[in-house]
Design a protein around this nucleic acid. Structure first.
Lengths: 317, 317
DNA sequence: ACAGTGTTTGAAACTAGTTACATGAGTCAA
DNA sequence: TTGACTCATGTAACTAGTTTCAAACACTGT
């Protein structure tokens, strides 16, 4: 329609300066009238680039992951990369399926949660030669770079805080442990308190499950003076349950969480929690994978510091 | 390496039955040793398909959207479609930028929130000829199909509930209204109560902002007997604040929310809320865009019923 | 023995672009 | 006037596959 070759159209689209003004305007007019849109696939086939990054996360239905993904998406966007989200439902096999899917789509990098992978994952990634970064954990000796906090340390920090306040009858409220090395790490850290841990119970990551499990703890081990909840969702659920049945926090029972959700500071009482820098983690992970993809600079593992936010829900025993 | 033409390799990959067993195994062996991976872009260029769907949402940092996205992702996955998430931060211009990005990537469909779009959006999608479905609203007369609840009705249902309990001094706690036609719709519905609405205040979607705004309401209009919160986050924040300052809900003040987050049923007291079927909405929207993409069947707008969950936080005045 | 049929396979055209190279026109100084 | 040079543009090769068509071959029935 513009009476030029496809090469010239390509130039108008990519290096408009090398085309004479007259032809450029001709082509632009034709593009406008024809509502021409260049095919992304055809461009990708030439550049060998898709500018897509895949994120494999357990679920979005949990504030901690959605804030992380949100931060990643914003950071990647700044480098012209787009994020494909794939949820695995804490299931290692589903993670493997989704990994295949993402690699088939042609993602140029993968972000995963934790360090444990299903058999075959490593081979898949090697075959596609795609950068992988693990997050939500810090495991420098596992082959793939990890950017995150040390879950063992986090669990230990939480229990140490309780011990420093004199608690020696602690109940641990854990999230699901299956296919979840992050929670397992936290639990190991918490169990360094040894005898001081009276009981460990597993709950779903919901207020109702936290309430039910709190009830169980109080029935089975009524002498506990502190709840250590491995996620803030559980701690918030426990706080609500304890308040409902008239147990006063922290007077009767201290409660500490891990995550430090933004909402935790506004609870009654404000929840003491180990702050996990998930927003920073999202930014750092996104920046690292960008560097790796664009400049082939493999990042080294990076430990992000988690620190306690001592609020009103824990007290000297 | 297998001593065959590329055509035969292509056949082994796509229609293995038409290739003789001997050559097939030869090719498969070569694929294995070479760790050959077919290029997704080259495939896409032939099929004209990317199997990608884009979702434009205000933020993931809000349970209501992340649950919606989670449900969509699961449903799309079942049809072999993948989801690219783009967040707009409630900003119409950023939404337009992200739309361009998604269309350049080659998404085959778009899911958007609400019906109001920046200038130029319509032209962009028409140019790319991509199906678009609006969610979180029901606006059958706006050109693009919408799958969601009627925000006006939802706001009206909430205020009608309060009125039916005899409340005639109602405070409305709204979320941000800028670039958010969903909240505006709810507010219009709530304002049908006319004189009964004493005050309308806008808050950020956080517990702390909800607390601060609740404080303001009690100072400025101490005679209110009910809080109508246009999001559960605000209602939960209000509940926590009121409890902290010793105001009893529902004895002193009734509180009703909109969203019905899973956590709301476990609050103290359990929060009365208008249940919004976001998980169903995610599934329905995903199924509809799949049908549209795969079979060119344009869906008609669908209204999903929102219904009140009458719990303990509202009472006869 | 020969025609008809079915099975495999490769050659070549095709998808929609990018890019190296060549060509032709126009400008300018020797 | 001519050689040197720049500028703009087309030609054709190239990206990595899919698909159509035709050819080669084996097998069957007459």
């Amino acid at each position: 329609m513009a009476g030029v070759s496809v090469a010239t159209v390509s130039r108008v689209l990519n290096k408009p300066t090398v085309v004479s003004k007259a032809t450029r305007e001709n082509v632009e007019r034709a593009i406008e009238t024809l509502k021409f849109v260049p095919s992304s696939s055809a461009r990708a086939i030439n550049s060998g680039r898709t500018r897509l990054v895949g994120a494999l996360i357990p679920t979005l239905d949990h504030a901690i992951f959605s804030r992380f993904i949100d931060a990643m998406e914003v950071q990647l966007d700044a480098s012209g990369l787009s994020l494909i989200v794939a949820t695995t439902g804490y299931d290692a096999d589903r993670e493997l399926d989704k990994t295949k899917r993402l690699l088939n789509i042609g993602v140029e990098g993968l972000i995963v949660s934790g360090i444990a992978r299903a058999d075959g994952f490593q081979e898949l990634v090697e075959r596609h030669q795609v950068p992988v970064i693990a997050t939500s954990c810090f495991e420098p000796d596992h082959g793939i770079p990890s950017i995150g906090y040390d879950n063992f340390q986090v669990g230990k920090d939480a229990v140490d805080h309780l011990r420093s306040l004199g608690h020696s009858n602690i109940a641990i409220l854990s999230g699901p442990i299956a296919d979840n090395d992050r929670t397992r790490g936290r639990l190991s850290g918490a169990l360094t308190a040894g005898e001081a841990v009276q009981t460990v119970l597993e709950a779903e990551l919901s207020f109702s499950s936290a309430a039910e499990t709190s009830r169980k703890i109080l029935t089975e081990t009524p002498n506990v003076t502190a709840f250590l909840c491995l996620s803030d969702v559980l701690a918030q659920g426990a706080l609500l349950y304890l308040s409902k049945i008239g147990v006063q926090v922290p007077r009767d029972i201290s409660v500490i969480g891990i995550d430090d959700l933004p909402s935790s500071a506004s609870f009654n009482p404000p929840l003491t929690s180990i702050h996990l820098p998930v927003v920073d983690m999202g930014k750092e992970a996104a920046a690292a994978i960008t560097q790796w993809i664009e400049a082939d600079i493999e990042p080294s593992s990076k430990k992000l510091e988690a620190e306690i936010r001592d609020r009103g829900s824990t007290i000297q025993v």
